[in-house]
Computed example of a mutant assay.
Amino acid sequence: MSLSSQQIRHLRGLAHSLKVIVSLGTKGLTDSVVEEIDHALSRHELLKVRVNVGDREVRDEIIEEIIQRTEATLVQRVGHVATLFRQNPERPKVDVGKR
Rank of each mutant, 00 (worst) to 15 (best):
residue 91 R to S: 10
residue 22 V to Y: 08
residue 8 I to S: 07
residue 22 V to N: 06
residue 92 P to E: 11
residue 96 V to K: 13
residue 16 H to S: 09
residue 92 P to W: 13
residue 5 S to V: 13
residue 11 L to T: 02
residue 25 G to A: 11
residue 29 L to T: 02
residue 6 Q to A: 15
residue 87 Q to V: 11
residue 12 R to S: 15
residue 34 V to F: 05
residue 88 N to I: 09
residue 42 S to C: 10
residue 33 V to A: 00
residue 86 R to T: 09
residue 25 G to S: 13
residue 45 E to G: 11
residue 68 Q to M: 10
residue 49 V to Q: 04
residue 37 I to K: 03
residue 94 V to P: 03
residue 21 I to F: 12
residue 86 R to G: 09
residue 31 D to C: 05
residue 15 A to M: 08
residue 35 E to W: 08
residue 72 A to Q: 01
residue 70 T to C: 12
residue 45 E to T: 14
residue 84 L to I: 15
residue 9 R to P: 06
residue 92 P to G: 14
residue 28 G to T: 07
residue 14 L to H: 08
residue 46 L to G: 07
residue 73 T to Y: 06
residue 76 Q to S: 15
residue 76 Q to I: 13
residue 66 I to W: 01
residue 76 Q to C: 13
residue 79 G to D: 01
residue 41 L to E: 04
residue 88 N to E: 12
residue 62 I to S: 02
residue 54 G to W: 05
residue 13 G to I: 05
residue 84 L to Y: 06
residue 1 M to W: 04
residue 61 E to R: 04
residue 2 S to E: 15
residue 83 T to Y: 03
residue 64 E to Y: 01
residue 12 R to M: 15
residue 51 V to T: 05
residue 97 G to P: 10
residue 81 V to I: 14
residue 53 V to C: 00
residue 6 Q to V: 15
residue 66 I to Q: 00
residue 33 V to P: 03
residue 35 E to R: 14
residue 46 L to M: 09
residue 16 H to R: 10
residue 79 G to A: 09
residue 58 V to A: 14
residue 79 G to V: 02
residue 70 T to H: 05
residue 68 Q to Y: 10
residue 40 A to K: 12
residue 51 V to M: 04
residue 57 E to K: 10
residue 83 T to D: 03
residue 13 G to H: 05
residue 87 Q to S: 12
residue 68 Q to W: 08
residue 1 M to A: 12
residue 73 T to E: 11
residue 36 E to P: 05
residue 76 Q to R: 10
residue 88 N to C: 12
residue 57 E to G: 05
residue 80 H to R: 04
residue 2 S to D: 15
residue 53 V to N: 02
residue 92 P to N: 11
residue 27 K to M: 08
residue 86 R to L: 06
residue 69 R to Q: 14
residue 20 V to K: 03
residue 51 V to G: 00
residue 92 P to Y: 15
residue 92 P to H: 13
residue 51 V to Y: 00
residue 89 P to F: 06
residue 70 T to R: 05
residue 51 V to A: 02
residue 43 R to P: 03
residue 67 I to Y: 07
residue 44 H to P: 02
residue 7 Q to Y: 13
residue 28 G to Q: 04
residue 38 D to N: 13
residue 55 D to S: 11
residue 27 K to D: 15
residue 7 Q to W: 15
residue 63 I to R: 00
residue 39 H to D: 11
residue 54 G to E: 07
residue 68 Q to G: 13
residue 54 G to V: 10
residue 62 I to Q: 03
residue 32 S to V: 15
residue 94 V to I: 15
residue 21 I to R: 12
residue 17 S to H: 07
residue 68 Q to R: 11
residue 26 T to K: 02
residue 39 H to L: 13
residue 91 R to G: 07
residue 46 L to E: 09
residue 3 L to N: 01
residue 64 E to V: 01
residue 56 R to N: 08
residue 20 V to L: 01
residue 16 H to F: 08
residue 89 P to G: 09
residue 85 F to T: 05
residue 99 R to C: 06
residue 52 N to M: 01
residue 75 V to G: 02
residue 90 E to W: 10
residue 8 I to F: 09
